[in-house]
Amino acid sequence: MRTVTRWIGDRFAMIAALLVLGYLFLPVAYTFVFSFNDYRKSNIIWNDASGPTLKHWKDPCGAPGVCDSLVTSLQVGLLATLVSTVLGTLLAFALVRQKFRGRGASNVLVFVPMATPEIVLGASLLTIFVQGFSRVGLQLGFWTIVIAHIMFCLSFVVVTVRARLQSLDPRLDEAAMDLYADPRSTFMRITLPLVMPGVVSAAMLAFALSFDDFIITNFVSGNETTFPKFVYVSYLRGIPAQANVIGFSMFVIAVGLVVLSQVVLSRRGR
């Protein structure tokens, strides 16, 4: 009897898991299917008359503005990832490896932005950009998006890198020192390579968060358009099928890159 229930229990968890994964992928599949739709308002009605078409895949930039918004999103994502990963990693090192006054306060300062709804972050940045920073010449646009994205990615980078740092055995560093390595080469040859997987994860997370952000971007972007904003704004007029092509391609590229990074990391060993 026990083996029977266990047999069902084992299968049950896996079946439920696959169903949930299917649920996660359903809209992605929908996006893929409708990238072949030959209709102006591509995401609403499937055009049976002319059947599936490849023309949007052959001309992904065919809809006005779609590729500009994608380029903006990629630029913002890369800049935000670079800066937030560097600043966040430095912060994580300080929080884990250093003793200093105000450590509790620093932890709170890192945590509270994550516990603040995005709309409040966006609203507060909008008020400061409009009422304060515009006086020193910073207008809403590309750079205000980058600034905002760095801010909200920073906390996620810190917690990711900090978790990796906390799981490292400090005795490894001590062993290096015992073997007459100076602090600099201990850091470059021992600490940094060990922390790297955490930093890479943090960078990928930052990029994903930045690339998919709409709510904060919507507040601070002015006339600049990122890819999610492009989709949201064009929803009422009808989303061009090229947006589906790009959305699905980004998904494939991201999966490819993640798989690649996994292979590289696992080859290097932990």
């Binding site: 996660l24 809209p27 992605v28 929908y30 989709v231 998904f251 993640v258 996994q262």
Partner: peptide, 25 residues
């Protein structure tokens, strides 16, 4: 790891696109 990637991957098809897909579904 494959399943883990599957959980994160939909992020890259903008969540706005996926929400609109839900509206149609």
């Amino acid at each position: 790891n494959v399943m883990l990637i599957c959980v994160i991957a939909p992020f890259f098809t903008s969540f706005i696109l996926r929400t609109i897909a839900w509206r149609q579904i």
